[in-house]
Computed example of a mutant assay.
Amino acid sequence: MVKLPKDKRREQLLDAAMAIVRENGADALSLVTLAAKAGVSRPVAYDHFSTRAGLLVALFQRLEEQYVQALRNALDTAPHELGTTADLMSGAYFNCLADLGPEAPAISAALKGSEEMALQQRAMIGEYVAIMCQALQPFANMDIKTLRLTCIGLLGAAEAIAREQQEGRIPEAAAIDAFSSLIAKGIGR
């Protein structure tokens, strides 16, 4: 076993964990299978994640960070107009889901009912809402509390549209168009 700095070892372990989920599904992921796949001792895996739920939450956080970065990058390039901002937000949301592949829903499903996952999802929604509010506030004809609630509703709609798309009932382009339209209509003056 090669000695790596703790942050590099953690990334290596997360890469190995993602490979296990990709190859065998989330049910096959444990700290023991992770240690074997990564070529480290069990105590190394336990030192980084403590529990299977901790490992799954860390994987989920990694995927969420990728989405948040994609959304921020898209918004940084946006011209200052509602339609373009809505298109970029929607595109970032659905492109990220496509880029993440089936691992994200598998990880999320493995954590259903977990208090750690519930906390992570609340934090994630709070971060998304803050990003959306900041990007959409210049176009909104509402106070910040109403805008926040509107953004929460828009995210709920995006999740419902994503389920339709992931289950093959609508193409990705239709999902992007629908969410973009909802943003523009929900925020428009």
Rank of each mutant, 00 (worst) to 15 (best):
V2H: 05
D7N: 05
D7T: 14
D7W: 12
K8P: 02
K8T: 15
E11W: 07
M18V: 07
I20A: 07
I20N: 09
L29H: 12
S30G: 08
S30I: 11
L31S: 09
V32A: 13
L34G: 10
L34H: 11
A35H: 10
A35L: 10
A36Q: 15
K37L: 07
K37Q: 15
G39K: 13
G39T: 14
V40Q: 07
P43E: 06
A45G: 11
A45P: 05
A45R: 12
Y46Q: 15
H48E: 03
H48I: 03
S50Y: 11
S50R: 15
T51A: 08
A53C: 06
L55C: 08
F60V: 04
F60E: 12
R62M: 09
R62L: 12
R62S: 15
L63Q: 14
E64W: 09
Q66S: 13
V68S: 07
V68N: 05
V68M: 11
V68L: 13
Q69R: 15
L71H: 07
N73R: 12
L75S: 06
L75R: 04
T77P: 02
T77F: 04
T77Y: 02
P79Q: 13
H80T: 06
L82C: 06
L82R: 03
L82I: 01
G83M: 08
G83H: 13
T85M: 05
M89C: 15
G91Y: 12
Y93E: 01
Y93L: 06
F94H: 12
N95F: 04
L97A: 14
A98D: 11
D99E: 14
G101S: 09
A104S: 07
A106W: 07
I107S: 08
I107M: 11
S108F: 14
A109C: 05
A110P: 00
L111G: 04
G113H: 06
E115W: 10
E115D: 13
A118T: 01
Q120F: 13
M124T: 10
I125H: 09
Y128P: 00
Y128F: 13
A130F: 08
C133S: 12
Q134P: 00
Q134N: 06
L136N: 05
Q137Y: 10
P138V: 05
F139P: 02
A140D: 06
A140I: 04
N141L: 09
M142D: 03
M142E: 05
D143M: 09
D143G: 13
K145F: 07
L147V: 03
L149F: 07
L149D: 04
T150R: 07
C151Y: 01
C151S: 02
I152A: 08
L155H: 02
G156H: 00
G156P: 01
A157F: 02
A158N: 01
E159K: 03
E159N: 04
A160M: 04
I161D: 01
A162W: 00
R163D: 05
E167G: 05
E167H: 07
E167M: 08
G168M: 11
G168Y: 12
R169I: 03
A173L: 09
A173V: 08
A174T: 03
A175R: 01
I176G: 02
D177V: 01
A178M: 02
F179L: 14
F179A: 00
A184K: 14
G186Y: 06
